[in-house]
């Protein structure tokens, strides 16, 4: 399906149709662990996007050089390189974010979104398409994790980006920013997002039918 689509379609694919979080359910570990505050969600999303874009590009460029048998170790080397770069950059320039994300930045190495795109897309497609796919998937992931962390931060701490948004009388529902709340909120968000997508698809289908008739 990826053969004839334009670059924009490849990019949009990662945001809606194959959104790594909402449609493919990949990368759940950082999604659940990090999404307790919006700043962390955005930070994690952008760090992953950076790694994803460059690993996709490099793997796509090297796809004719890497032997089929050792492709997984090669992916690891490429991905780990960019994760190390992100890790050091964050430590140098945004130490507070680096501290709050902690272990989860090095853990991007084993993020299955990046592996999945390397294996199923970048290894089989030319660099420009791989780049678009990396951006699309990265932004799709960033959007999803930001949405989840916004919901969790507002309900769980009554704040957004650290600023109090709920009235003073609001008692934050603390479980939402704890691990069990993460699972529950992710499930509820999946429900809402998929219901919306379904409704939109239905409307599109009805419109198409009308045009035919």
């Amino acid at each position: 399906m990826s053969g004839k689509k334009g670059i924009t379609a490849v990019f949009m694919n990662g945001i809606i149709n194959e959104n790594p979080t909402f449609r493919l359910l990949l990368g759940m570990c950082p999604t659940l662990a990090i999404s307790t505050a919006v700043t962390q969600g955005v930070g994690m999303g952008l760090a992953t996007t950076f790694v994803l874009v460059f690993s996709n590009l490099v793997i796509s460029l090297l796809r004719n050089v890497i032997p089929e048998k050792v492709r997984i170790p090669s992916f690891v080397v490429v991905i780990a390189t960019f994760v190390t770069i992100v890790d050091l950059l964050l430590k140098a320039f945004i130490p507070s974010l680096s501290q709050s994300l902690g272990l989860y930045i090095p853990l991007i190495v084993v993020n299955c979104i990046i592996f999945a795109r390397a294996e199923s897309y970048a290894f089989k497609n030319p660099p420009l398409r791989a780049l678009a796919d990396g951006f699309g998937m990265g932004f799709g992931f960033t959007l999803a994790i930001t949405l989840l962390s916004a919901v969790r931060e507002v309900i769980g701490s009554g704040t957004f980006l650290g600023i109090q948004v709920m009235p003073a009388a609001y008692h934050p529902m603390a479980i939402v920013i704890r691990p069990p709340g993460g699972f529950v909120m992710l499930g509820l968000l999946l429900l809402v997002v998929n219901a919306v997508i379904k409704a939109v698809d239905k409307r599109k289908l009805a419109k198409a039918k009308e045009e035919i008739a």
Binding site: P172, A174, V176
Partner: peptide, 10 residues
């Protein structure tokens, strides 16, 4: 239990 962990003081 959910409420206990959410609004412990209340």
């Amino acid at each position: 239990t959910i409420m206990m962990l959410s609004w412990t003081s209340l």
